[in-house]
């Protein structure tokens, strides 16, 4: 049963990190961005395979480059950001699929990259996921107020002398680390749901930014535990099962929000 323990430890750590990043993705209206970044990871896997540099390194480097590219393009006005992100998200997914078939042909287990394969993580994988999640959680803690301030009004933060560019770059870096560790849990197609759904569910009962992050982490952790249970009990794929449980929490939060607004 070791594999279940590794899955719980690795998946739980990733969910905790997702809960910290997720609220910022919502506040900054970056859910499309998260999707694009996650899909680009498939291209990273293919490139890592072709270069023989390892999957994790491939994903990390590609995600970082991609995040940098998106940040530079954020201020262009020719196309709306949503159109541009749509192009990037699907373009990189297609590039990744083509690249994977060139790199590994039929031996590549495509599904494990697309929707995750948490029950196959090794002890080393789980440790890496814990370490990456720690980096994300600690890193975000260090830039929290700056990131919050610039998420509200970037020019005000600049005028007040905050390190806006550095904060944005660090945030992008943390997102890339997160994508790298989350592929094994839910796969590139479902990564942004791990960011957004627990955070959205936490909104209804949160009174402060920190509270929303904390509750999102809590919901994410419980979601992974229950999702693994569901997957084990019904023999369904683990990644999608985790997301289905998260959806359940979101539905519950809608009901709570309805009750709260009725009573006030």
């Amino acid at each position: 049963m070791d594999f279940l323990l590794y899955a719980l430890i690795g998946g739980g750590a990733v969910a905790l990190a997702a809960g910290q990043l997720g609220p910022f993705v919502i506040w900054r209206r970056m859910s499309y961005f998260g999707d694009s970044l996650a899909h680009s990871a498939l291209l990273g896997i293919a490139l890592g395979m072709i270069a023989g540099a390892g999957l994790n390194l491939g994903v990390l480097v590609t995600s970082l480059l991609f995040a940098g590219l998106l940040v530079t393009l954020e201020h262009q006005r020719r196309l709306g950001m949503d159109a541009l992100l749509g192009i990037f998200a699907h373009g990189s997914l297609a590039l990744g699929l083509v690249g994977l078939s060139l790199a590994g042909g039929a031996q590549v287990d495509l599904m494990s990259f697309l929707v995750g394969d948490i029950l196959a993580v090794s002890r080393g994988d789980a440790l890496l996921m814990v370490a990456t999640s720690l980096v994300v959680i600690v890193g975000l803690r260090l830039i929290f107020d700056w990131l919050l301030s610039l998420s509200i009004h970037e020019e005000l933060s600049l005028a007040e002398g905050w390190p806006v560019l550095r904060t944005r770059l660090i945030f992008m870096g943390l997102m890339a680390f997160f994508v790298m560790s989350a592929i094994k849990v839910v796969g590139v197609l479902l990564i942004s749901s791990l960011l957004i759904i627990p955070a959205a569910a936490a909104r209804a009962i949160s009174r402060s930014p920190e509270m929303m992050c904390l509750i999102a982490s809590g919901i994410g952790f419980v979601t992974v535990v229950l999702g693994l249970g569901l997957s084990f009990g019904l023999d369904t794929p683990a990644g999608p099962s985790i997301v289905v449980v998260a959806l359940g929490f979101f539905g519950l939060s809608l009901a709570i929000a309805g009750l709260v607004s009725k009573s006030s």
Partner: peptide
């Protein structure tokens, strides 16, 4: 300045 409704602050 507009504060997102999703941000409890």
């Amino acid at each position: 300045i507009s504060i997102e409704p999703s941000l409890p602050l």
